[in-house]
């Protein structure tokens, strides 16, 4: 099976994020988007079971090669970085367009795996937009996946607000994963050595035949001109003293007075 894992590089979830003059910075090295670790793990498990190869695909600045190296260290066979100044400012739909162009260029791909969402923009739009652009089976929020490469079908369990939904579909498919799907492995020592020597090609706008009207700021239907910290929560904490029973009674009084309960 020919599998593509779409991954993004994001700030570390523990990083302190600051914004100054509209520019967002953080105090720790960027990482592989935590949700995408599950994507990469699932892709590698499918390859281990059925054979084939896994290509990690990332759209981002040149520094995002680090996230792709993590993917190779975990066990991906190849990695490709989509990077071009023209791509800057691409929104989720423009991102999906570029990923779709790259996947078409890769040729006979059977399965594309994505994470649930990227922890910077938090949109969760890319996987299903990508499925529609490719015209492939759309399967989001997948917590269990079984593929039959011969029959070219799949069985999946999706995790919805109401519970689990079991579905079947045909290949090729775009799968959005959730955390329940697996437990990601740590990169092995051999993997890290392989990653440090890996040659990661960079594909620009011309390489994927990108229509300039569909990428970057010009190609994005949404824009986010201002980013700012949330208002600080008004009021300071009131510590309620006393024995557990007294404190509980006082707390209930306060919450009733505030009309919270």
């Amino acid at each position: 099976m020919n599998i593509v894992a779409c991954v993004k590089q994001t700030p570390d979830s523990a990083a302190k994020i600051t914004v100054e003059n509209g520019k967002v910075t953080w105090d720790a090295a960027p990482v592989l988007n935590p949700w995408d670790e599950y994507t990469v793990e699932e892709a590698i498990r499918l390859k281990e079971k059925h054979g084939g190869k896994v290509t990690a695909l990332c759209l981002g600045p040149e520094t995002a090669k680090e996230a792709l190296k993590t993917c190779i260290a975990m066990g991906c066979d190849e990695a490709i970085l989509l990077s071009d100044p023209a791509f800057e400012g691409s929104d989720a739909l423009a991102t999906a367009y570029l990923l779709a162009q790259a996947i078409r260029k890769l040729g006979a791909v059977d399965l594309v795996l994505c994470g649930k969402q990227a922890i910077d923009g938090d949109t969760g739009l890319v996987p299903m937009a990508l499925a529609r652009l490719l015209g492939w089976s759309p399967i989001s929020y997948t917590m269990y996946l079984e593929v039959d490469p011969v029959a070219r079908t799949l069985k999946a369990t999706r995790l919805l607000e109401q519970g689990k939904q079991m579905v079947t579909a045909k290949l090729p498919a775009v799968i959005g994963t959730v955390k329940e799907i697996n437990e990601p492995r740590y990169p092995s020592f051999m993997g890290i050595r392989k990653a440090s020597k890996a040659n990661i090609p960079i594909w620009g706008a011309a390489d994927v035949g990108a229509d300039p009207a569909k990428v970057g700021i010009a190609g994005s239907a949404t824009k986010w001109p201002t980013i700012y910290p949330p208002p600080t929560r008004e009021g300071t904490v009131e510590i309620i003293e006393g024995t557990p029973e007294e404190a509980a009674a006082k707390l209930v009084d306060r919450l009733i007075a505030d009309k919270v309960i």
Partner: peptide, 15 residues
Amino acid sequence: KPVYAGKLLSDVTFA
């Protein structure tokens, strides 16, 4: 809309 897991907010419009 909240971004960066609610650590920041963003004003978003259609272009």
